[in-house]
Design a protein around this nucleic acid. Sequence first.
DNA 1: GTTGCCATGTAAACTGTTACATGATTTC
DNA 2: GAAATCATGTAACAGTTTACATGGCAAC
Lengths: 178, 178
Amino acid sequence: MKKDIKPTLLDFAILGLIYDQPLSGYGIRKVFEETAMGNYSNSPGTIYPAIKRLEKFELAKKILQPDTGKTRIQITQKGLLRLKEWLIKPIEKKEVEKKIDELLLRFAFMENLINKEQKIIFLRSFHDLLETYIQDLQTFYGKESNKMPLHGRLAFEHGIESNKTTLKWCKNTISALT
Amino acid sequence: MKKDIKPTLLDFAILGLIYDQPLSGYGIRKVFEETAMGNYSNSPGTIYPAIKRLEKFELAKKILQPDTGKTRIQITQKGLLRLKEWLIKPIEKKEVEKKIDELLLRFAFMENLINKEQKIIFLRSFHDLLETYIQDLQTFYGKESNKMPLHGRLAFEHGIESNKTTLKWCKNTISALT
DNA sequence: GTTGCCATGTAAACTGTTACATGATTTC
DNA sequence: GAAATCATGTAACAGTTTACATGGCAAC
């Protein structure tokens, strides 16, 4: 009778960060505020409850730095397991359609946590799902574009081009890793 | 002593939809479920409270279709005003950095609601802010890429390429409209 | 006559936002 | 000694998700 532990995306973003090195709550906030990982809220009202959540689930714990005596949040064994599970879980269609950012975050965290084969599996799957999705979009466009309002069509074209750019990135990245 | 009316993005998405034609709550859900506008939740627990919100703010109202006798949600004068305000409001830096989808949605809704000059102002502003942002990203990349972990660097490159694609789209779209 | 779609809602739990509040430590 | 930064939290509120619940109407 396990309790359902469903970490949020923010939870995983924190786990990935503190895997690299234990951080204070404030340190986490600074990362979200100042770096490219800035899609996540850096407000104390978000971060501190999230840390509590991670502690409650036993995915992270507070430690005392031996040198400075300051408190830091560290990932636990269980947290590491959960993080890895999240990294290698199969990509779903709807993630490719609507959660590219989350997939990129997963990729960014993979470096030292999973092996090369698993990375390639991830990227190939990403690539293939994207290719199918782009074909669907183009098929739809071919059939419907004449009935679509101008702005709708233009916005739709942006979607196609965006996905093509990501597809190209997948190809390049697979090359870069092999 | 005006009450603060702060419609959410979902609220504006609904307003933009029902501007085109009055819809039932169910009809709105279907659009979010089946079309390219699928970033928004189509669950009844999201849509019906949102409709109530719009009615409370007097941005939309229920009407009876004279022919079928069915209830539909229609945008009000006030709703139309709010929608237009939202469409033409100046683009902020952080929207270009993190809310491209929202900007594209605004563009999609502009077609019959604002004049050509305002559309061009929007697109030029979008373009210019993007150009600055891409330069910032590239400057950062030039300085820091050698210190970045491989996956971090690769994910960062995706960000740059995505934004370049959107920049190109801005240029093309400005051409298409002039 | 039953399957599927049209249609509308509520309740509980959770997440996130905004604002408030406090205090220590470091830097100038 | 003042200002900036480090550091942690709470409270009220708003919005979303998930699940539950219901019922009409149309097609086959």
